[in-house]
Design a binder for these strands. Structure first.
Lengths: 100, 100
DNA sequence: TTAGTATTTAGATAGTTGTCTAAATATATA
DNA sequence: TATATATTTAGACAACTATCTAAATACTAA
């Protein structure tokens, strides 16, 4: 789970995820959308893969990358515990400070 | 939005959020839950505040910190675009590779 | 005012991260 | 085989981050 937050903590990597929302792409096609060297993009793809936000399939010379939304679902669950919708009917304890 | 991912990219800070889910606490009370110095926790609280994940109110000597779920809601929205529930009825374009 | 408590600010340091170029690996094709 | 293309690995470096101790600030209470 730590890896997921780490992976999402970078604009370029989040942009890669948005790109792949539309269609699967090869590493080269992805790199063409950014002003970074291919090794740099390759590195970002690696981190996204480690976080299991992407999957990859090699086909001939090419490696196709796809979104993996499974982890996003877990993250969603984590976040829901903080939102109003997930709050208990009895409100959380408020601090005992009584003014002065 | 960048600040939010940055703030969440640290276990201690995520633990602080979980702590505050139960009840509001002072900086000192929060610090007592961790094996880090108070300045270190103060720094983490500052980053969480910058990301607007926390609010703080000073009362006398004490500063009470509370969760602010507004940003979590925004983050939820961002994430929903990647999940199955948010997918269009027409599936995304698949790569045109035809084997060989 | 003086002493004590709560918290933050400042400055230092080790470790991590994003980026690059150069080189290596793997596949395709002539 | 030799050459070209796609991608990754390796190594270097500047910038950023988490942590610490020491000092500063702000408030409380004697």
């Amino acid at each position: 789970m730590n890896n997921v937050f780490k992976a999402l903590n970078d604009k370029t990597r989040r942009d890669i995820l948005e790109l792949l929302k539309k269609e699967d792409m090869t590493a080269g096609q992805i790199a063409d959308h950014f002003n970074f060297s291919k090794p740099t993009i390759s590195h970002h793809l690696d981190l996204l893969k480690q976080a299991e936000l992407l999957t990859s399939v090699k086909k001939g010379q090419y490696i196709f990358y796809s979104l993996n939304t499974t982890v996003m679902d877990e993250l969603l669950k984590w976040m829901l515990q903080f939102t109003a919708a997930a709050m208990p009917l009895t409100p959380k304890k408020k601090p005992g400070y009584e003014g002065k």
